[in-house]
Amino acid sequence: MRKIGIFLFIFISLCLYFNFLLSGYDPNLIHLDSIYQSPSKEYIFGTDSLGRDLFIRLLFALKTSFLIGIFASFFTICFACFYVFLMRLVFYSFFIRLLNIFLSLPILLLLMFFQSFLQGGFWSMIFIIALAHFPFIAKVLEDELKRLEKLEFYECALVLGCSKIRAFFKELLPPCFSLLMVLFVLNVIHAINTESTLSFFGLGLAFEIPSLGNILNDASKAIFLGAWWMIVFPLLFILGLILPLLLLARFWQNIFGIRL
Rank of each mutant, 00 (worst) to 15 (best):
Y154S: 05
K63R: 15
F201L: 15
L203E: 08
C15M: 12
F113P: 05
L205Y: 07
V84P: 14
I126D: 10
L99C: 07
P175A: 04
C15E: 02
Y17K: 02
E142Q: 13
F251W: 14
S199C: 08
L118E: 12
Y36D: 14
H190G: 14
W229V: 04
G121A: 09
L58I: 12
A72P: 07
L203G: 09
I231N: 05
F177R: 12
L245H: 01
S178K: 14
L183I: 07
H31N: 13
N19P: 03
S220H: 12
P39E: 10
P234C: 04
A132W: 09
Y17E: 01
I4G: 00
F75K: 01
I96R: 15
Q253N: 09
I189E: 07
A249F: 01
F7W: 05
W252M: 13
D53F: 11
P174I: 09
D53R: 09
R259T: 13
R52T: 02
L62H: 07
E152F: 07
F95V: 08
A157Y: 09
Q253L: 03
L21A: 08
L8F: 12
Y83E: 04
F122G: 05
A227C: 11
A132L: 03
Q37F: 05
L86M: 14
I96D: 11
M112L: 15
A222W: 06
F9T: 01
